[in-house]
Amino acid sequence: MNEIEVQVVDWHTTEALRDIRRAVFIIEQQIPESLEWDSDDPVATHFLLTCDQEPVGTARLLDDGHIGRVAILQEWRGRNLGETLMLAVMEHAQALGMHTLLLSAQSYALEFYRRLGFQVCSAEYLEAGIAHYAMRRDNPCNDMPPIEFVSPGRFSIHNPQEAAAVTRELNLTWQLGEHRDLIEIDEQQTQDHLLWMLAQARRRVFIYAADQAVWLFNRREVIDAVEQLVARQPKARVQILLHEATKPFLQGHSLVNLMHRFPSLLQIRKQHPERLKGPQVYMLVDDSGVLMLPRSIRREGFIRYNSPDQVRRWQGTFEDLWASSQSDSAIRRFLL
């Protein structure tokens, strides 16, 4: 074994990626093919590890810092190639400004990922019938040794600007449970008030028809705010009800990734197809906060920080729909 390389390659034109994953996951681990291929593949950054130009390993990186589909062909294991591959992915992620890396590790691989600085951040859960743990690494790649990394330079990496977390100070003064004013909101104000209200949440958050406002709920800042809520309030519960589990809501970085990591704190379900789908999108926070977009096709509405009567009314509607809601195979998609 003379020459080891890790390259960023194009998903559409590099058949070796599919060959390796098919051999490791579908044939060796007996994972259903319908779970192996998903909507993240066309938009992920893919890595191919070669030894003397022979493809032997692969991995992918999502825009939200998730590393997945890490695979080394069986006959090439035991040569530290998995570590070489992971270090390349982590170094690439750091170059993109990703300060937190996430992955879903099969139980047998926990020690491997711990050696790379990842820590378990969930209870055991099953994916495709295999025990997994969510793992996380903050401030990655500070002490990684140099490795040989070659990019073919023949395509553009899908890395939209929105994927980078944007931090800004919210100069808002409204307090949850105190201010009774009805505040009219447009698109930018909706984003700011949603973050401000989530920052004050303590017990529960209900979100209706999040898939009808992907422009709002698939933003990195919102996902981070929900993650911070469940981290600081371990008794808090977040329930999200969708009209449909659509690709725009599921693909890339999304709240679904958080559900896989915090399944007991965050639940996402689909409304029963026979129930009437409301035209509105809304979020209810604790006993008093309501953010309402009366028509999902318009990015405007209102917010109230202290409206317990309105929260009780919409909460009753939400809980009634939730009682008949369904899980969805797309929501439970396989994340390795």
Rank of each mutant, 00 (worst) to 15 (best):
M1C: 05
E3N: 11
Q7S: 14
E15V: 10
L17V: 09
D19W: 09
R21V: 10
A23N: 14
A23R: 13
I27Y: 09
Q30R: 14
I31Y: 02
P32A: 09
E33K: 10
A44T: 00
F47L: 08
L49D: 08
T50L: 07
D52W: 09
Q53D: 12
T58N: 06
R60L: 06
D64S: 11
A71E: 03
R77Y: 05
L81V: 08
E83G: 14
E83A: 15
T84H: 11
A88G: 14
A105R: 06
S107N: 08
Y108D: 13
F112S: 02
C121M: 10
A123K: 15
E124K: 14
E124Q: 15
E124Y: 08
H132C: 11
D143L: 00
D143G: 02
P146K: 13
P146A: 15
V150P: 05
S156M: 11
I157S: 04
V166D: 07
V166E: 09
T167Q: 08
L176V: 09
D181E: 15
L182A: 12
I183T: 06
E184D: 10
M197P: 07
A201V: 08
F206R: 10
Q212S: 12
V214M: 01
V214K: 01
W215L: 05
V222Q: 07
V222P: 00
E227G: 06
E227C: 07
Q228H: 04
E244C: 08
A245Q: 07
K247S: 12
F249R: 02
L250N: 01
M259T: 13
K270M: 09
H272V: 05
K277W: 15
G278P: 00
Q280G: 08
V281Y: 01
D286M: 02
M292K: 05
M292W: 06
E300C: 01
I303N: 05
R312D: 13
R313P: 01
R313S: 13
E319I: 07
D320L: 11
W322M: 04
A323Q: 12
L336G: 14
